[in-house]
Amino acid sequence: MEILSFNTNNVDNSYSNNDVLSVFKEISKKNASIQQGMSTKEISEIVSDKLITIVKAQFEATKNKYETKEKIKSI
């Protein structure tokens, strides 16, 4: 997928220039911030990744709190 942009300074063509085998890499190169000229798919992936990170952190905190409460009860 090629991106057409008149302002080439702020565009990172993360979809058009990836190698074919990049889908098999464990750690893929992704943009971490939203920039002008990004497609809606790129923006939605960044937002989804950030939301998933936040939800995982909340689950981990709740799990730790629950485990601590269970340890105190068992003493």
Rank of each mutant, 00 (worst) to 15 (best):
S39E: 06
L51R: 10
D49W: 01
S48V: 04
V20H: 05
I75P: 02
A57V: 01
D12A: 03
S28E: 14
K41L: 14
N31K: 11
D19R: 14
D19N: 13
V47K: 05
Q35P: 00
S22Q: 10
V55Y: 13
K50L: 07
N31E: 12
V11P: 05
Q58K: 14
K69H: 03
F6G: 15
K30M: 07
D19H: 09
K50T: 07
N17L: 13
F24C: 02
K56L: 08
V47F: 02
K73N: 09
I54F: 07
I3C: 06
T40Q: 10
S48C: 07
I3K: 08
E26A: 02
D12C: 06
V23S: 14
E42P: 00
Y15M: 02
K30T: 10
T8H: 09
T62V: 11
I72V: 14
T8G: 01
Y15D: 11
I52N: 14
E2F: 02
T68D: 14
S5R: 13
Q58T: 04
T53Y: 03
F24R: 03
S14R: 05
K63W: 02
N17E: 15
E42N: 04
N13H: 06
E26S: 09
L4S: 09
S74T: 03
Q58S: 13
K41Q: 14
I34A: 03
S5A: 12
T62A: 15
M38I: 00
S5H: 06
D12K: 05
A61M: 07
N31C: 01
N64A: 12
K50Q: 11
K25W: 02
F6S: 08
K41P: 00
S39G: 11
K69R: 08
D49P: 00
S22T: 10
N10V: 10
I75R: 15
K50W: 03
S22Y: 05
S39L: 12
I46C: 00
K50D: 06
I27E: 07
V11S: 04
Q58I: 09
N10K: 08
T53F: 04
E26T: 08
A32T: 09
S22C: 04
Y66N: 14
D19W: 06
E67R: 08
N9S: 14
K29S: 08
E42Y: 01
V20I: 13
L51T: 05
I52C: 02
S33T: 06
Q58M: 11
K41G: 03
E45D: 15
N18E: 10
I43H: 05
L4W: 03
I52W: 00
E26I: 01
D19K: 12
E67A: 04
K65Q: 12
S33D: 05
K65H: 10
K71P: 00
S74H: 03
N9I: 08
K25S: 07
N10Q: 05
D49E: 14
I75N: 14
S74N: 15
K41Y: 13
K71W: 04
E45M: 12
N17Q: 12
T68N: 14
K25T: 03
